[in-house]
Amino acid sequence: MRLTKLHLAVVGAAAALAACTPAAEDPQDVFFNTIAAHCGNAYEGRVTSGNPETDATWMNNRIVIEVRECTENRIRIPLHVGDNHSRTWIITRLPQGGLELKHDHRLEDGSHDPMTMYGGSTVTPGTPTAQAFPADEYSKQLFTELDATVSITNTWWLSFPDENTMRYRLSRENREFHVDVDLSSPLPADDFPPLPWGWEDHYQY
């Protein structure tokens, strides 16, 4: 069939529009950059789903996160629970694509806790506001070696239920744990927690 001038004009206009339309942003890039936008800030959180017995320490102490260190491909977020400054979340852009979440746990002298660097990588693109991190093979082996096999089926989530909330979620069968962080009220600098354990002298990924 011969194309008329009208057909050619329509095809040409469609091609021009396609060329001018920006490609959709990668949801994981949007997600990563949303967290990075809070770099340098600290916020309070609270347990919104948990077990009053096993999660009592979290429920009865002040929870503070710091988006403390951000580079192009990695964000480090210390997590403080009362006087416990042992935890840091590490979110990494992987060279092969996807995101990784690791839990860096330290002892007071800055050395690694035996239960450390567990976590996982995304297996789907997720969304700009939610990413899931099922336990990876390293974590499953670690949980087995340290008699914590109940955690082998862990999936960790980071999400933004709304523009003022970041949620950390741990889920597995018979286990739901959520910490909601209030992003609407950054803490003043003089209310920041002390440095995470090991940050100054021993903090290596």
Rank of each mutant, 00 (worst) to 15 (best):
G82I: 06
M59G: 14
I77T: 08
A56Y: 08
P95G: 14
C70K: 00
L79K: 05
T57G: 09
T88F: 09
I63Q: 01
E72L: 11
P95E: 11
P78S: 08
T92G: 09
A56L: 13
E72T: 12
V64M: 04
E66L: 15
D55K: 03
T54D: 08
L94V: 09
G97T: 08
H80M: 07
I63M: 06
V64L: 03
T54Q: 06
R62H: 06
N61D: 03
G97L: 13
I77W: 02
R87P: 07
R68I: 14
E66G: 15
R76L: 13
P78I: 05
C70H: 01
Q96V: 09
D55E: 10
E72Y: 02
A56W: 05
V81H: 01
N73A: 13
N60Q: 14
P78C: 06
G82N: 02
I75S: 01
N73E: 08
C70V: 05
A56I: 09
V81R: 02
V64P: 02
T88N: 03
R74V: 14
V67P: 05
L79Y: 04
D55T: 05
N61G: 02
R68Y: 09
G82S: 05
T71Y: 08
E69L: 12
D83Y: 07
I90H: 00
V64A: 06
C70P: 00
G82V: 06
E53A: 15
I91W: 01
I63F: 06
G82L: 04
V81A: 05
T57W: 00
R93S: 05
E66R: 12
D83E: 14
I75N: 03
P95N: 11
R93V: 08
D55W: 01
T71W: 06
E66W: 02
I65D: 00
V81L: 06
P95A: 12
